[in-house]
């Protein structure tokens, strides 16, 4: 009896590494399964949110974008803001000046890029996306950024980004999918306006946006633009109208405006600008 138990334990011990080495199930396999454990169900929920944020996370999503609008191919494409980055979190970020857990980082995306309501860190939607990210990170390096992280940083071109030239490039290369007014079409997301990312999001930083455009746009003819063209288009997008940066308290802004208006009106009372002396 005892022998049998040992034998069973042995078989179990042998089978464990074998199971470990087996490839993780693909999303398609998970979708076909009748029974999922909690982690797998969560991964699938996360995948659904990434592919269709408005349908699966309606409570917190705020615009017409979805996670996969920027995290291309459901976050699997290198140089297209891939999501297989669980290995580098928690990490310090300059954006909010604190150490960010993966969940904290995800809720930023809801607030800025999806221009919605910031979910709490333990919201089911956040935990699901977090599970999906760690699922994608299977086999990637831990502690160092994986290959193809973020977007490429473009080299110095020697010329400033020019929105006017960018507009020309936009008309030539982008309008087919994104529409002449940048409001998006059935195949591509809106680039500005109230249905796009807000002024506080990472996409609103010109060098990063330029890197994304150069590496991934136009779809089907990636890396066909020059570095300078990508920078110009990015600058053109940057100056468009989009939702405000939610980090600024609107009421405080309003109070500041009123204060400045009043101090301009009563010029004598306003503190004098420092002079060179």
């Amino acid at each position: 009896m005892k022998k049998l138990l040992f034998a069973a334990a042995g078989v179990l011990a042998l089978s464990l590494p074998a199971q470990d080495a087996a490839a993780r199930p693909t999303i398609e396999e998970l979708q076909k399964r009748a029974v999922l454990d909690d982690y797998e169900a969560n991964v699938l929920f996360g995948y659904n949110i990434v592919m269709d944020s408005n349908r699966y996370a309606p409570r917190y999503a705020g615009n017409a974008l979805r996670c996969s609008s920027c995290h291309l191919d459901g976050g699997t494409r290198p140089d297209g803001f891939p999501l297989f980055v669980a290995g580098v979190y928690p990490k310090w970020r300059a954006k909010n000046g604190v150490r960010n857990s993966l969940e904290m980082r995800i809720r930023d995306c809801f607030l800025y890029s999806l221009s919605g309501v910031m979910p709490p860190e333990e919201a089911p939607e956040v935990l699901a996306v977090s599970a999906y990210i760690s699922y994608l990170s299977y086999g990637k390096s831990i502690g160092t950024p994986p290959q193809g992280w973020g977007v490429p940083t473009l080299p110095e071109t020697g010329a400033d980004p020019d929105p006017a030239r960018g507009q020309a490039v936009f008309r030539r290369a982008c309008t087919l999918c994104h529409g002449a007014d940048g409001a998006g079409t059935a195949v591509a997301p809106p680039l500005w306006g109230f249905q796009s990312f807000n002024a506080g999001s990472g996409m609103n930083v010109v060098p990063r946006l330029a890197g994304f455009i150069w590496a991934n746009m136009p779809m089907g003819a990636e890396r066909s633009l020059t570095h300078q063209e990508a920078l110009d288009v990015a600058a053109f997008l940057h100056i468009q109208h989009r939702p405000f940066d939610p980090r600024e308290g609107r009421l405080r802004k309003l109070a500041e405006e009123i204060y400045h208006g009043l101090s301009r009106l009563f010029g004598a009372r306003a503190p004098a600008a420092p002079t060179g002396r």
Partner: peptide
């Protein structure tokens, strides 16, 4: 008022 003054992050 609190939300409007400080914003969602602060």
């Amino acid at each position: 008022l609190v939300y409007g003054w400080l914003g969602p992050v602060d």
